[in-house]
Design a binder for these strands. Sequence first.
RNA 1: UGGGGUGUUGCCAAGCGGUAAGGCGACGGGUUUUGGUCCCGUUAUUCGAGGGUUCGAAUCCUUCCACCCCAGCCA
Length: 568
Amino acid sequence: MTTSEKNSGDVSLSAHVNFIRVRVAEDIASGKNAGRVMTRFPPEPNGYLHIGHAKSICLNFGLSKEFAGVTNLRFDDTNPAKEEVEYVESIMRDVKWLGFDWEDRLYYASDYFEKLFAYAVELIKKGKAYVDDQSAEEIRANRGTLKQPGTNSPYRDRSVEENLELFARMRAGEFPDGTRVLRAKIDMASPNVVMRDPALYRIKHVHHHRTGDAWCIYPMYDFAHCLSDSIEGVTHSICTLEFANNRPLYDWILDELGVFHPQQIEFARLNLTHTVLSKRKLIHLVNEGITTGWDDPRMPTLSGIRRRGFTPEAMRDFCERIGVARSDNMVEYGLLEHCLREDLNARAPRAMAVLRPLKVVIENYPDDKTDDVFDFPWHPEKDMGMRKVPFSKVLYIEQDDFREVPPKGYHRLYPGNEVRLRYAYYITCREVVKDADGNITELRCTYDPESRGGGSPDGRKIKGTLHWVSAAHAVDAEVRLYDLLFTASNPGAEEDFTSCINPKSLEVVRAKLEPALADSAPGWICQFERLGYFCADEKDSKPGAPVFNRAATLKDTWGKIEKKQGGK
RNA sequence: UGGGGUGUUGCCAAGCGGUAAGGCGACGGGUUUUGGUCCCGUUAUUCGAGGGUUCGAAUCCUUCCACCCCAGCCA
């Protein structure tokens, strides 16, 4: 076996290796949890899922799939002030869209409120938790600083009985918000501030989207999360790095209660260039009307990229390729685009659309000929059937495909040059027609009848191939050309992230489509040949009145060359 | 010396004492009825920096530097 053979055998495997998979594999090998693997995806229903969540979803569901385990979907709904059913619905929709199934394992932290309360009582009885009457301000002041220890609360040594009574009265609704809190009794001098008697329960007379008004005290994340994991029997509790500081508390609660102890493992969250992934910033984009909503195709939300035309396959591939590690990262948007192109190149039907039409009249083509209809394949390699594409005397081509004065290396249409209309005929530009202001209004061309189908008997080489649409048969459509939302690669690092909004993140054009596209179903994705991948807008596109969104352009080698030449 | 974490090519990322995988990107070439796709080749004498151990170090020790997270009754 040669080295290359050896390597190629390892490639797919090594590309997928990450420290979490290794750890889970080790746990299975050592017999931990009797070889059982259970992960969970635990979003708080307080916003829409974005690409960063996709990384976590793919990681958790991918792990259980790989190791014959299961993954739960659990809503971490412990703060009713921020949560809404609208979000739980969108989250379920997005996880499903990504291609994952939690089957019957849909849970809510709020399902456990009664159990959680009982655990808190148990902690109190063990002398490990107490009710603190200090105000939030006092508690903050007594927590100390990062370098100085905190000081004990004057209520820290209340009797178990008094704590029990007070905690019961908190639950009974006897106290207003903010007047008391249940705290873990750990160590006010801990170098880890998370461990300085963290709050476990707070009073919130707020309606909960699931439990209604049954509760007026709600558990904090640190108390609810570890116990929810434990109750469900989660074996590997995977979260992002910023929770590493909370792990000692996660472990402390579970150990004090002596319950099943899942292992928390942290990984670095995803950062993507040219976008923002913080909930606060995304909300700002929506609320300020910078984008049209959570599902604006420029948003990095899953609902946004779905509407843009991204596929779940591309998203999963992306999540696989970026890897999982603990170092801060900033993944280039180009990788995401690459994953989309790779998926769509293989699967998307092809069609012709002219974004910026330039009229072409074929002088030697019969005026009245209307039965010149081609059968073109929907895909050049895959058998996806055929579609009818009519040809006629007056056509549209892309304005960019004609130059009166061709730059060096240009092999599209220019006076005297012959090009191929894709799959149809060769045409030669004979004359340029302009209006009074000197704007080009139409091109007079001739065609070679012998070249029907896009080839010629003499086998002469034609360098340029253009897409085209018959004017008489063209379907008018709105096409939205999306580009990066931000010009800066790391907008989050700017003083004001909205200062680098890309003014050209959206350009709307009136395009001419080939007739087969007239009744495109909303959500349908295809390649407009030579231009990019486009998706019929799921909200605004209607059969007969299509609206397309550009998901991504095709790679544009000529554009790059031209740019280097200093051209436009 | 608050505590926790991380530093491998432009961007991700393997590697875990035996002499720097892979992907994206970039660059060059071939094929091509999408200047797309595909194919081929090039792209880290070096692993944050210095010192040490060793026949041998990205991997071990040590000092230093840089960056990220933590002082919500948010998650």
